[in-house]
Design a protein around this nucleic acid. Structure first.
Lengths: 332, 332
DNA sequence: ACAATAGTTGTAATCGTTTACTTTTTATCT
DNA sequence: AGATAAAAAGTAAACGATTACAACTATTGT
């Protein structure tokens, strides 16, 4: 394996000059630059990253810590992050916390060990609550989850507003007894719940909300319970794609059709939402944009460590489909 | 930031001893071990990975190069890989090729630069065709895609057999004019096509297959075309989850119901397959197992570089659902 | 009690770059 | 042409660990 000194020898320059052309266009004459490039080419030289990182104390690596890669929202976000990262000659280390604060802590420690240039994090609730930028030796940008009090760069959906709009839309459709199933473990679930409560209160309606672990199975179980009760709700709303999936499963098991027996709506426009039944009304998130905005924020923060804290809030988009068409002459 | 010599000083030992206890249980007395551990604890010392990697020439990093992270199959595989990797104190660098051989080449070069301990790759067709283990300075384990000629560790589904079984099942159900839409760019699509052809030939039936880029949109377009033709097939089969999704979309657009107007089946048991219409019959892949088997193979290969090449073939599982129930008195 | 041996510990070289500092070359101005 | 400034190139010291090798200590057998 060729080393920098081999290149230097062949190009008849010093290693410093080689390093300089490697680094970019700093103070070397075009002639030597060419000679060096040619030597690099000829020897198929590739700099040793470990050595470079040791000496320069930079890794050009970013950590991406998501709470559940199986959630298509995060899949799409990570895709965007990777695309942009590699375009900016950065590497990405991907980690999955499964909403487990311990794992999250482990990975954050790992990031410190790796001496990453920065981290993108979708924090668990406890991590968010105690989040201090100064606790980390690297820049952190939050994605998807952030609350009012947190001082940190972040990219999020307008969760409360989106939920408010979705619920208000359902109310306008004629639904009254709207039940809301939301993720218990995330700030996002809470904020969407908040929007739900506000919307219901504005229209003088009683709320019927339930927090569950953000998994398909938990949502399915909770919905089954709800449905079994004597007083069936008008409509069911899930606070994210996984939960919505659980709701659909529960309805199917109970042999309930939407919108015939109940209205249905949720968050996240997943591939299947337009295919089941008459299509499901959802609040769509601009997932790729969210990912892109996040890494841009991080790259800027890395470049300018002391720039003011920024928060990017993207707007959800309502996609009306058949699942929320109120049935004429519906009983309750 | 504390360094190893600070630890050595505090524990009143040499840096070599500290390094030894860090490395494991080699030739240090329990007493000094304790002193060192205590010092490490007290100083909150964490070894510098860049320095370690430079000197030891090992990175404990594996590269995971998948062709499309948005395909739930690969999402699940990567989850398994990560779980296992971190349990074995390895890091994972995730890369997406989008089926683009150029990107793939770029990432493989990157892996070389990173001096990874090993790589898990789902190769594009051209990469597979010219694959030579000896072209790489690191062990490579293939996942999902591999053909008979390739000499490499690999974990794959029994693609041809699974397809054969799925098609045979449909034939037994009474379907005759079975159209097969498969991914053009992957070995997997080809092999499943092969199984389809064999099954049809065995029963003296004519084939009607079409290769498309493995995207939802391409599959949708191809299926729309097929449907528009005068002679409608009996049944449609998609060679993977993305393609199956495209088929469902096309049928919906054309207002065709399954199984009433056509039978439908495919590969990959995605979250939504049991929810659309009467549920879709699929050949399910043991995705998590595939991921797990893959990284296990890689870790073993890393530990024993010259062990014989191994191939793990996992069996697909047929999940019969409503979409493939032949209708009595169906016209053609 | 002494030699041989096995087991611990320490010293210093090494991994392959980047970069501070010094020296040389080139360009500019009078 | 000579003095001065600016630019380019070179030398060698880091970066922070691992590890070959040397040195020292304790154990064992006779």
């Amino acid at each position: 394996m060729a080393q920098i000194k081999d290149v230097a020898k062949r190009a008849e320059v010093s290693v410093a000059s080689v390093s300089r052309v490697l680094a970019g266009h700093t103070g070397v004459t075009e002639a030597t630059r060419q000679r060096v490039l040619e030597a690099i080419e000829a020897l198929d030289y590739r700099p040793d990253l470990a050595a470079r990182r040791l000496r320069s104390r930079r890794t050009d690596t970013i950590g991406l810590i998501v709470s559940d890669i199986r959630n298509p929202f995060f899949t799409e976000v990570s895709r965007a992050v990777e695309d942009m990262a590699y375009q900016n000659r950065m590497r990405v280390i991907l980690c999955n916390t499964d909403e487990d604060p311990d794992k999250e802590g482990f990975y954050l420690d790992l990031m410190r060990d790796e001496n990453v240039s920065g981290v993108i994090l979708s924090p668990t609730l406890p991590a968010l609550a105690r989040f201090r930028m100064s606790d980390y030796s690297f820049p952190v940008v939050l994605v998807d989850r952030c609350d009012r009090e947190t001082t940190a760069d972040a990219v999020v959906l307008d969760n409360a507003d989106s939920a408010y709009r979705l619920i208000t839309y359902l109310i306008k459709q004629g639904y009254r007894r709207i039940a809301f199933i939301h993720g218990a473990a995330s700030a996002t679930g809470r904020q969407r719940h908040e929007g739900y409560v506000t919307a219901m209160a504005t229209h003088g309606l009683e709320t019927q909300a339930q927090a569950v672990p953000a998994t398909v199975e938990a949502a399915r179980a909770a919905a089954s319970e709800l449905i079994r009760e004597s007083s069936l709700p008008d409509a069911l709303v899930g606070s994210n794609g996984l939960i919505l999936l659980g709701l659909v499963k529960a309805l199917r098991e109970a042999n309930l059709q939407f919108p015939e027996h109940l209205g249905l709506a949720g968050f996240d426009d997943l591939p299947w939402t337009q295919l089941v039944g008459p299509g499901i009304t959802v609040m769509a998130q601009p997932t790729y944009d969210i990912g892109q905005a996040t890494i841009e924020l991080l790259l800027q923060r890395i470049a300018h460590p002391s720039q003011p804290v920024r928060r990017v809030v993207l707007r959800g988009e309502l996609r009306e489909r058949g699942s929320s068409v109120r049935q004429k002459g519906s009983a309750n």
